[in-house]
Computed example of a mutant assay.
Amino acid sequence: MLATVGSLLGSKRVNLQCMDGVVRMGRIPGSKNKKMWIREGDIVIATPWEIQDSKADVIWKYTRPQIEWLERKGYLK
């Protein structure tokens, strides 16, 4: 699910505004921590937890050309 990073919480955690309208606390897994530098306003893919719907894992960060393509195709408003 696509999400926008709202704020950085520290300790590999972020607030995510997901496309379904739910604000979730996102976690950046250790394998992606050093490879993805995430800032406020970035577009990411988040997978909600099965146990707690209010939390999610960040699995991918889109680059600027990818975001422009998503906007042209109508995935982002």
Rank of each mutant, 00 (worst) to 15 (best):
M1N: 02
M1P: 05
M1R: 04
L2F: 06
L2R: 01
L2T: 01
L2E: 00
A3T: 03
V5A: 03
V5L: 05
G6W: 10
G6H: 02
G6S: 05
G6Q: 08
S7N: 12
S7Y: 12
L8R: 15
L8M: 12
L9I: 14
L9W: 06
G10I: 10
R13P: 00
R13H: 13
V14D: 00
N15S: 07
N15W: 09
N15G: 02
N15H: 10
N15F: 08
N15C: 04
L16M: 03
C18A: 09
D20Q: 04
D20V: 04
D20S: 05
G21D: 02
V22R: 03
V23Q: 13
R24G: 00
M25W: 01
M25Q: 11
M25L: 11
G26I: 01
G26N: 00
G26Q: 00
I28V: 12
P29I: 08
P29D: 07
G30A: 11
G30M: 11
K32Q: 10
N33S: 14
N33P: 01
N33F: 14
K35S: 13
M36I: 07
M36T: 01
M36D: 01
M36S: 02
W37C: 13
W37H: 14
W37E: 13
I38G: 02
I38C: 03
R39Y: 07
G41I: 02
G41M: 03
D42R: 07
D42I: 00
V44Q: 00
V44N: 00
V44G: 02
I45Y: 08
A46T: 05
A46Y: 13
A46H: 07
T47G: 11
P48T: 02
E50C: 08
E50K: 14
I51V: 15
Q52F: 15
Q52R: 15
Q52T: 14
Q52I: 13
D53E: 15
S54C: 10
S54W: 12
S54F: 12
A56I: 01
V58I: 15
W60R: 14
W60S: 04
K61W: 07
K61R: 11
K61Y: 10
K61L: 07
Y62C: 01
T63R: 12
R64D: 10
P65N: 05
P65I: 05
P65V: 05
P65H: 05
P65S: 06
E68W: 15
E68P: 01
E68L: 14
L70Y: 04
L70A: 00
E71A: 11
R72N: 12
R72Y: 13
R72C: 07
K73T: 07
K73Y: 11
L76N: 03
L76K: 03
K77G: 03
K77N: 06
K77Q: 05
K77Y: 04
